[in-house]
Design a protein around this nucleic acid. Structure first.
Length: 124
DNA sequence: AGGATGACATTAC
DNA sequence: GGTAATGCCATCC
């Protein structure tokens, strides 16, 4: 069910440590869901129910309006930002990209499995 | 069924 | 270091 996916995505966003980020694609891969676009869609609908600024584009950017709001959080959390030549700032993915440790991986694995059994075992 | 859309990703230039 | 073209997956008309 989509709800299960939504839950998992929001849940994952919630366990991303402050100062760190994940790309939409990372989330999609960690949870083994359709793809980046689906994750983006979910965030657009339910992003306000989670630390949405920790789920960003693979190149460390976000839509301009969102980035304006996100930068506030980044400064507060100490997220590595790139010096913007022009326009809104960008996150340094190389530095900020979250690498889950084994224990955290286990939690993610649980989420992924939950989604899997929800999306898989339907209809039949 | 066919086509357009979206908080995207990758590759090529 | 950019922008442009293609590919992606799920949804909605």
């Amino acid at each position: 069910m989509r709800e299960a996916v939504v839950e998992a995505v929001l849940d994952l966003a919630a366990i991303v440590p402050p100062g760190r980020v994940l790309s939409y694609g990372d989330v999609a891969e960690l949870l083994d869901v359709g793809g980046p676009r689906l994750v983006g869609r979910i965030m657009s609908l339910h992003g306000d129910a989670a630390p949405w600024w920790r789920i960003i584009r693979a190149n460390g950017s976000l839509p301009d309006e969102l980035m304006e709001r996100a930068v506030v959080h980044y400064r507060r959390e100490g997220t590595p930002l790139a010096a913007p030549a022009a326009g809104p700032a960008k996150v340094r993915m190389a530095q900020a990209r979250w690498m889950p440790q084994e224990e955290e991986f286990a939690a993610i694995e649980r989420l992924r499995r939950k989604v899997s059994e929800a999306t898989d075992g339907m209809g039949a």
